Simulated scan of single mutants.
Amino acid sequence: MPKVSAEHRAARREQIVDAMLRCVARDGFHKTTMAAVISESGLSAGAVYLYFRSKDELIRAIAELVVGEGLSVVTDSSADDVPPPHQVLAAALERVVALGEERGVDVHRVALQAWAEAARNPEIRAIYAREGERGRAVWATYAEQAIAAGHLPADASPVRVAHALIGLIPGFMVQRLVFEDLTPAGYVAGLAGLMGT
């Protein structure tokens, strides 16, 4: 039996995650079943279950993907040349929007469905809480750097700044659902205005 390459396994995994994203964007998490994901992926049930044993595992993969994409921009901010908060937030939002464009799905629609599901399902809430803790730590580290760089007041609390910046992300997602012309740059221009920068 020929060995399956790591690239092939990664491509199959991405194919299944993309199918899940499309199903959730269309039908929501609650109505999306493993059977729907299998059908959407074009793969056999055995192939899908080889990579994901349950819907919760797929939800975890989506949470890790979306959060990871946004956080990658924050962690890439150099400690030597720390951009101001509105620029980092814009870059994170642009990366998430680009992720949706690359995958052909409205990530903001999926995010809203995920949060709604987390409100009713303790297992999903636990998945998002783990990712949220990771996000809070990354944003708090950025806030420490932004304080040191003079972008924020010296007595600002990095954790409180992190919570405020994280809170702006769902705000963008909700508004993007209603105002399709809203861009990350336009959204964070308001933050820059509030900060007087």
Rank of each mutant, 00 (worst) to 15 (best):
A19F: 05
R109F: 04
L43G: 01
A98N: 13
E131L: 04
L21E: 04
E131D: 10
A143P: 02
V174E: 12
A36D: 15
V174D: 05
I124P: 10
P2M: 00
R176K: 15
G42V: 11
V24E: 01
A92E: 14
A25G: 15
I127L: 15
E101G: 00
P84L: 03
A185E: 14
V159Y: 08
Q15S: 11
A19L: 07
D56F: 11
V88Q: 09
R134Q: 12
Q87Y: 05
P85Y: 01
R160L: 00
W139R: 02
A79F: 00
H8S: 13
G193V: 03
I169E: 11
A164I: 02
E180L: 14
R136M: 03
A154F: 04
L182A: 10
L191W: 06
D56N: 15
S44Q: 08
D155A: 04
H151E: 07
L165W: 04
I38G: 04
V17W: 04
D27L: 02
H108S: 12
E94T: 06
A92M: 14
V174S: 11
A111K: 08
Q145E: 04
A114I: 03
I127N: 13
G132F: 03
Y187R: 10
R176G: 15
L71H: 10
V96C: 02
I38H: 07
V37S: 00
